[in-house]
Simulated scan of single mutants.
Amino acid sequence: MKKSLHDIAFSMLDLVPVREGGTVADALAISLRTARHAERLGFTRYWLAEHHNMPGIASSATAVLVGHIAGGTERIRVGSGGVMLPNHAPLVVAEAFGTLAELYPGRIDLGLGRAPGTDPMTMRALRRDRMESVDDFPRDVAELQRLLGDAQPGQKLIANPGAGTRVPIWLLGSSLFSAQLAAERGLPYAFASHFAPAMLLQAIEVYRAHFKPSAACPRPYVTIGVPLVAAPTDEEAQLLASSVFQRVLGILRGQRGKLAAPVEGFAASLQPQERAALQDFLACAVIGSPDTVRDGLNKLAELTECDEMMFTCDIFDPALRLRSLDIAAAVRSGAPVPASA
């Protein structure tokens, strides 16, 4: 049966961008304000992404931020999107998220990725001389499942806090590896189509075809990442999206910086190869007026039959970022777009 947008959960992934002219403290305050707004709009969850050694992203201490956002909200689920497991010992992750689960019962998610989320030098600084192999991530996921599950008789290593909290574990990925592992373990799966959409449909197909039901997740559950820039008109949305375009081109050029202000005519100034690179990176982006957003989200829903859409919304002006979420929520509910939009 075809899903309507009303059947799909809306959520938010926040990299906690530091804006040009702004500070880390500003970025943290904006994220809390955004989370509270998403909660008022009925969003399902608010996730923070782990990145390191990047001047424009303030979400490196992901578990700390999860606690900050959870403490400043009341109902919305809060979690990691994700904790980059190669950077951490599973016991430390289990204790941190076990503590969060005790502080905010029934509201904490643990999304796990297998990339380091940083450069090789920083990766070595995080875990020193640890050498990763293809078997490490599945083994670490299994250890986290044990540590967050009920302690068993004779179990010598127990996470305290952590044991018995059964914090929901999600696997994140942009290739087939995590899709296969999530299916095998019966875990919910989030595809990173907000920055690496190329294998989206193939990964979802693999995940659903091989899914083994579990107590934690009795049926396949798919979340897709969606870059969102919504505004009253297509023209304004394209202008606001120039901040995203500048960020993406910076990533592709290895020149990461703070989130830049919009630039009039930026897209028109690009070379054809730059436009093509942006299109590849942002193939799942929905940018435009309420009608354009409605069409774009419906197309993604039909294409993927996803259970949840998780928006990234890197708009320079924090108030216009909230307005963008307002438009998405109105489109989903079928309500008139707020006059303020």
Rank of each mutant, 00 (worst) to 15 (best):
F191K: 14
R294N: 14
L200V: 06
K212I: 11
P116E: 06
K3D: 03
A215V: 02
K3Q: 07
G79W: 15
Y207H: 13
F266I: 08
A125D: 04
R107C: 11
G334T: 11
P105M: 09
A58F: 09
E39H: 01
L13M: 13
R208V: 07
G67H: 11
A261T: 00
V244I: 13
R146A: 13
R33V: 01
R166F: 02
A237C: 08
E305Q: 15
A159M: 03
T118K: 10
S59M: 02
Q246V: 05
A159D: 03
T122E: 02
A285V: 04
P168L: 12
L28P: 02
C284S: 12
F316E: 02
V16Q: 13
M121E: 14
T99S: 13
L112T: 03
L320G: 00
L303T: 15
L85N: 06
V337F: 05
R185N: 11
M123V: 08
N87I: 07
L144K: 05
A198C: 00
S174L: 09
F211I: 10
Y46R: 03
S59A: 15
F281S: 13
H37F: 07
A94L: 09
K258I: 00
F137N: 06
P213M: 08
G71P: 02
T62E: 02
P272T: 06
I287P: 10
H37Y: 11
L65N: 09
P262A: 04
A328Y: 07
Y207N: 12
I69D: 08
R323W: 08
G113V: 06
V167E: 06
E50W: 05
R40K: 14
P153A: 11
E264P: 00
I327W: 04
Q271H: 10
Y189S: 01
P17K: 04
E20C: 03
L103F: 14
R332Y: 15
